[in-house]
Amino acid sequence: MLADDEALIRAGVRAILDTDPGIEVVGEAPDGRQAVESALAHRPDVVLMDIGMPVLDGLDAAAEIRRALPAAAVLVLTTFAEDAYVARALAEGAAGFLLKSGDPRELLAGVHAAADGAAYLSPRIAHRVIQQLNASGAGNRLGRGAAARERVATLSPREREVLALLGSGLSNAEIAARLHIVEGTVKVFVSAILRRLEVKNRVQAAIVAHEAGLVPGDPA
């Protein structure tokens, strides 16, 4: 299901989704309240949710949908101008973030990942989140980095390797190919990582990976 208050955005996103025979758009909504009603009516596997919408904002709508339909994954459609909302979405268990200006292939990959019970974090979004966190001050950054490194230290070397690749935005299949192991083994590692880091989903785990400096290109 697709929720965005801009008709042109909805049309463009739907056109991309319609190119994939494995994806069916079952409903659209121009505001948060109608998004909730459409989700309850259609019970979609994945909801693509804009943040800034009238009547009810996207994050409040997402929270209502998750309470009513806990099996539904909510992917946030965002722009860099909406960074202030990212931390809130993370805390509320968003399954991932997609850039409206991103590669159409990312949109399709994100929907499939969420439908498969995984999550999708655009690498550009991940780096942007870290930049936002770092902007709050060196002291806070060092404190978060130290806390993240302490949490990551509880993982095995292989789990840290998987976490680093997860933080880079790789899917389970891509991680398996990179590490020359089967995808089922990756799923076991990811489940263990989420449990030991005490995070809700892959998105939150990716943020820990970035804060701990596991992802190449992150600030030291």
Rank of each mutant, 00 (worst) to 15 (best):
R105F: 03
V188I: 13
A147K: 05
E28Q: 12
E211P: 02
E24Y: 08
A209W: 04
A138Q: 07
P44D: 09
A71D: 06
A119W: 12
A11R: 05
L40D: 06
Q131H: 15
H112S: 11
M1I: 11
V129Y: 04
A148G: 04
A177C: 14
Q204L: 14
R33T: 12
G217S: 12
A164F: 11
S101I: 03
L170P: 10
V13K: 02
A209D: 08
G102C: 04
R124T: 08
A173T: 09
L214Q: 12
G27C: 05
R141C: 05
L56R: 14
L59S: 00
R178K: 14
G139C: 04
G22F: 08
V203P: 01
V129L: 10
K100D: 04
A15P: 02
K187L: 08
A118K: 15
A153L: 14
P123F: 01
A113L: 13
A41Y: 02
L2H: 10
T79S: 14
A205T: 14
D83I: 09
D5C: 10
R151P: 02
V162S: 06
D5A: 07
G96F: 01
V47N: 02
A118L: 15
L121S: 01
E106W: 04
P54R: 12
G137R: 13
E161H: 14
R149W: 09
A7N: 04
V26W: 12
I207W: 03
Y85K: 00
P54Y: 11
G213I: 14
D218N: 15
V186L: 05
V26T: 13
A73N: 06
G12D: 05
E183H: 07
V190L: 12
L98D: 01
F97M: 00
P216D: 10
R105M: 05
I51D: 01
V152W: 02
A146E: 02
E150Q: 13
D116F: 13
V36D: 07
D20M: 13
A138N: 05
R33H: 06
P21D: 13
S101M: 04
I51Q: 01
G167A: 01
A138D: 08
G137E: 13
V182M: 02
E64A: 14
V74H: 00
L8Y: 08
S122M: 04
V46N: 03
D116P: 09
D116M: 15
A89V: 00
E28S: 10
Q131N: 15
A29S: 12
T19E: 14
A126P: 06
A114L: 09
I9L: 06
G27S: 09
E211Q: 13
G58H: 01
I130H: 15
P123M: 01
S171R: 10
L8E: 06
L48A: 05
T79C: 13
G110L: 11
G12V: 04
D31S: 08
G145I: 06
L99N: 03
A7M: 03
A209Q: 04
A95H: 02
A212Q: 11
A135Q: 14
R10E: 02
L75F: 06
E211K: 05
